[in-house]
Design a protein around this nucleic acid. Structure first.
Length: 424
RNA sequence: GGAGAGGUGGCAGAGCGGUCGAAUGCGGCGGUCUUGAAAACCGCUUUACCCGCAAGGGUAACGGGGGUUCGAAUCCCUCCCUCUCCGCCA
């Protein structure tokens, strides 16, 4: 949620930045300004009236104590009308505040100046590309076939026990999955991130604070009986660790990493996008999360990108780095880089990481602040990125590394897998 | 799941209908003293919003929500959470 003070004091900047998204920025901001004005007027009115009421109550108390009962009763009679009026104003203020809050929830984050304009994924900027694209023979096979053939991955078993989009990993496939998780966690820990194992279900407050509610309600699995949501990413529980906190300057920066399974309903997806591991309802991911001072956050975003590049290089996967355009960015993000790896058998790029700076969009909802040099609380910047999303990494590894002698494991992973090749 | 106790400021812990954002202690910050430090003493020490250039003023918040009352941290209802005991259990 954008800060009200920002919208009020930097209206022009907000409109320019928001204009990069496919929304009617002016209309949204006009309405916010209007609601804000009504709210302030209503509150000023109510506060003044309440102050009068408080004075009267105090008088009654003093008179009662002094034993001047009839005088107290005289004032008490006057309060009846006041009370009704107060009630009405309170109701009006509550309604206005709710309307304003609800409206602010519909405004996406303002894209950073560096974000290119554009509507769709076609308009994203390819920042760089690295790694040789493997030349596979005509008999190259997609990962879902390799998975069955080598007894690594079984989509049909997932269908049997749960439903479509819930993969079952087995044997060396399961081991490879675990190796990747361990490798990613170790790399992050070595880079100074503190490891967290969070709950995999969160309450509505947490889902709201990081922006999943109300914006992506249908995207999460909901356990209605307990009012809980299965996490779509570790970002949600880990970032919420710092909800309602005012950090001491010495506590910054906060660097955390966590592995969790991620659950996504992906309602409405279909076709070749969802073959095999390309898009599933449950996948594993190692996520890095940071809490930073505003002046540091964009430097940190680049640092996080470098970290993920390092992982992809270690895995010897061809990848490219995309800077998302305004139209393709997530609702809560101010700037997002995506990383895609090339899955050679399918001949397509698969998104395996998304690294975003949310500026104060999340911290405003989280009420996550730090104490500045002026001793006052300021909203911190939050960032997070996949480092890395597992299912698609596995897909690319299987496809790209297939050969006559089985599937070759990248050197960096071998200490984790305990084998250097997957045989039949 | 059942029974009981309880949720107050950074922490500990009073207050149980009247001017209480809240005693006291600890911690933290500033000062006096000291060659320096400690101790002692003095002062300060929550957050959000509104009005104001500012100085300053106002409103709200004692787990969440609702109610009673002129007035609620204090009374009532409800939800959540913590602790103890019982049951169940990886």
């Amino acid at each position: 949620m954008l800060e009200l003070a920002y919208l009020r004091n930097h209206r022009a900047d907000a409109e320019t930045r928001l204009a990069k998204r496919p929304i009617d920025a002016k209309a949204l901001l006009d309405k916010a300004a209007e609601l804000d004005e009504v709210r302030r007027a209503t509150q000023a009115e109510l506060d003044a009236k309440q102050a009068e009421m408080n004075t009267m109550s105090r008088s009654i108390g003093e008179l009662m104590k002094a034993g001047r009962r009839s005088e107290a009763d005289h004032i008490r009679v006057q309060t009846a009308e006041f009370k009704e009026h107060l009630q009405e104003m309170r109701t009006r203020l509550d309604a206005t505040e709710k309307a304003l809050h609800d409206h602010l929830c519909t405004i996406p984050n303002a894209p950073s100046d560096k974000v290119p304009a554009g509507r769709t994924a076609e308009d994203n900027t390819v920042v760089m590309q690295e790694g040789a694209i493997p030349e596979l023979g005509p008999d190259a096979r997609p990962h879902w076939e390799l998975g069955e053939e080598f007894d690594l991955l079984h989509m049909d078993l997932g269908v049997k026990i749960t439903g479509a989009g819930f993969p079952v990993y087995s044997g060396q496939g399961a081991r490879l999955q675990r190796a990747l998780i361990a490798f990613f966690l170790d790399q992050a820990t070595a880079a100074g991130y503190r490891e967290i194992i969070p709950p995999h279900l969160v309450n509505a407050d947490s889902a709201f604070a990081t922006g999943q509610l109300p914006d992506k309600e249908g995207q999460m699995y909901h356990v209605a009986e307990d009012g809980l949501y299965l996490i779509p990413t570790a970002e949600v529980p880990i970032t919420n660790l710092y909800r309602d906190e005012i950090l001491d300057p010495a506590q910054l920066p906060v660097k955390m990493v966590g592995y969790t399974p991620c659950f996504r309903r992906e309602a409405g997806s279909y076709g070749k996008d969802v073959r095999g591991l390309n898009r599933v309802h449950q996948f594993d991911k190692v996520e890095i999360v940071r809490i930073e001072r505003p002046e540091d956050s964009y430097g940190v975003l680049e640092e996080m990108v470098e970290h993920v590049k390092g992982l992809l290089r270690s895995l010897e996967l061809p990848y490219r780095l995309l800077l998302l355009c305004g139209g393709d960015m997530g609702f809560a993000s101010a700037m997002t880089y995506d990383m895609e790896v090339y899955a050679a058998a399918q001949g397509r790029w698969l998104e395996v990481s998304s690294i975003s700076n949310f500026e104060t969009f999340q911290s405003n909802r989280l009420k996550l602040r730090y104490r500045g040099a002026d001793k006052k609380p300021h909203l911190a910047h939050t960032l997070n990125g996949s480092a890395l999303a597992l299912a698609r990494i596995m897909a690319a590894l299987l496809e790209n590394n297939q050969g006559p002698d089985g599937i070759v494991i990248p050197k960096a992973l071998r200490p984790y897998t305990g084998f250097d090749r997957i045989h039949k």
